[in-house]
Simulated assay, not measured.
Amino acid sequence: MDIRVSALPGHRQGILRFDAESFPCALGRSGIVTDKREGDGGTPVGSFALRELLFRPDRAAKPLTALSAKPIAPDDGWCDAPSDKAYNRPVKLPYKASAETLWREDHLYDLVVPLGYNDDPVRHGAGSAIFFHLAKEDGSGLAATEGCVALRLPDMLHILARVTPETRMIVELASAA
């Protein structure tokens, strides 16, 4: 069973559908895009594998899930430098090129699932660090991401408990009725 994601009017927020249930989700600040580029703030359209669950062990125990799971550490990062050989790959910090920190002060990456976007093969400049992670609230609901799909913690735990390694996240331009 796959996860389906589509944008709501306004583009920054969407609906995530899984097994006849719907959940509000945050999308990239530029909405869903068909031609993803590094730094554009878009959530790429497509069908993506859920690679594994990364979790922050000082904040939560490994949640129930059939995905492979591993704890992150304070020196874990993700390379977002398009010209670097480790582009769109995990790295150890400090790293010689630009890299996103996975061990964050906010709670966005307490649970994070790297999506199988631009990783086999990697196309330099086509976008990196596209994750399924926890959402942040803002005054109008869920705050936009930099291109990821994000859920509230209870919804994320519910989904993680029911996905399998075969589950794919399908990001669509139009809302499915």
Rank of each mutant, 00 (worst) to 15 (best):
G42I: 10
G10L: 09
P9W: 04
S68G: 01
E137Y: 06
T34A: 15
E166C: 02
N118H: 09
L54G: 10
A20T: 08
G116Y: 04
R162K: 13
V45M: 10
K62P: 01
H107I: 05
P57N: 11
L108D: 08
W78P: 09
P57W: 01
S128N: 13
P165S: 00
V33D: 04
K136A: 15
K92W: 03
L53K: 05
F18S: 00
I3N: 02
C79M: 14
P90N: 00
A86M: 14
A135H: 11
D40W: 05
A73L: 13
S47Y: 04
F55M: 05
E21K: 14
I3Y: 06
L108V: 14
L54I: 13
G10N: 13
E146R: 14
K36C: 12
H158D: 15
R59N: 03
G141D: 01
D84F: 05
S128H: 09
I72S: 12
G39E: 10
S175I: 05
W103G: 14
N88W: 03
C148T: 05
S140L: 12
R168N: 00
E100D: 13
L157W: 06
L53N: 02
I72V: 15
R59K: 12
K70C: 01
H133Y: 13
G41Y: 07
Q13H: 08
I15H: 02
